[in-house]
């Protein structure tokens, strides 16, 4: 009996390919664990340690200090009472909003315009190509371009002087620096948003628009009563992903202000903060800031997930 059952077991070798699926995903996961997951865990790990470079080659720590890094981040460092992280968070938010509002407004107008069968806009391919172009361009190159254009001797100042004005130091004034960063982000992203919203509108059943029009709705009414409500999930999705991207704003302000966040750190963003601390090799503090940013984006992502899974 036993011998038979043993034989049976041996014979049970099957034709199965499923192990190949595992082989195929191995490279992805090995690389993911080595180059992403372990670093991520280390980041979190060090955020609970005092661990920084005092001078060249001399490190303090790692000493476990619990949440002290996080607590320190929310302590004012000087008599003025400003808390760095909140300030930089505020900078980031303001610059994102100033750029995102026109970005979404104009993208929405363009998307409606391009999808309108009544207006039947010609040359859409050309316009879309132009509007999306800034998005494929290196953010660092674009920022340097803006720096050149708005610099002290740049074309804009030359035009102002030619018309009898005085040189404006765009890059040394809080408002103008923030505005320039917001504008750069706007120029780089409104084309992308337009295309995504357009796809959203095109995804709406054409006959809904037609029936609304036959029922006597004006163009504006169609937009308000049909387009907007049905576009809402995609619109919100776009908006929140833009928010997540905005929180991670780095390239543009970093290059435009040479990493300084001039003037007086009013254009310094959170990621610039991480970058600065990390360059100084303070692993504990940079870990803590990264974690805070991660938690905020995590919450925002969760909202995106909830929204996209609703429809």
């Amino acid at each position: 009996m036993k011998a038979i059952s043993l034989e049976r077991k041996e014979k049970k070798k099957k034709v199965t390919y499923d192990r190949w699926g595992l082989y195929f995903i191995i490279p992805f996961f090995v690389v993911y664990f080595l180059f992403t997951l372990i670093p991520q865990l280390l980041t979190i790990f060090y955020s609970f340690f005092e661990y920084y470079r005092k001078t060249v080659g001399v490190y303090i720590g790692p000493n476990f200090i619990g949440f002290q890094n996080y607590v320190n981040l929310f302590k004012p460092i000087d008599s003025s009472g400003t808390i760095d992280i909140l300030k930089y968070f505020g900078n980031t938010t303001i610059m994102w909003i100033v750029g995102a509002l026109p970005q979404f407004l104009i993208a929405l107008i363009l998307a409606v315009m391009f999808t309108s069968t009544r207006l039947n806009v010609k040359g859409q391919g050309f316009f879309k190509t132009v509007f999306y172009l800034p998005n494929v361009i290196m953010a660092s190159a674009f920022s340097l371009l803006i720096f050149q254009v708005f610099g002290r001797v740049g074309p804009i100042n030359q035009i102002i002087v030619m018309n009898g004005g005085n040189t404006v130091d765009f890059l040394r004034q809080k408002t103008s620096v923030r505005a320039l960063i917001a504008m750069t982000n706007f120029v780089m992203w409104f084309g992308n948003t337009t295309i995504v919203l357009m796809a959203g509108i095109q995804g709406i059943d054409e006959s809904l628009f037609e029936s609304a029009r036959i029922d006597g709705a004006s163009s504006f009414k169609v937009f308000k009563d049909i387009t907007m409500p049905l576009l809402k999930p995609i619109f919100i999705y776009c908006f929140i992903t833009s928010m997540i991207g905005g929180l991670q704003m780095f390239d543009v302000p970093q290059i435009l202000t040479a990493g300084q966040g001039t003037p007086d750190f009013t254009s310094k963003t959170i990621v610039m903060f991480i970058n600065e601390v990390l360059r100084a090799k303070d692993y504990g503090k940079s870990g803590a800031i990264s974690m805070i940013l991660f938690i905020i984006t995590g919450i925002l992502s969760l909202i995106v997930y909830k929204i996209t899974n609703k429809d």
Partner: peptide
Amino acid sequence: AGLEDITEGELFIDGQLVNAVEP
């Protein structure tokens, strides 16, 4: 064909047991 594995039993093609032979 060998695209689905055989839970129990034996399959012979041309006199040869092929349960575990790939298609």
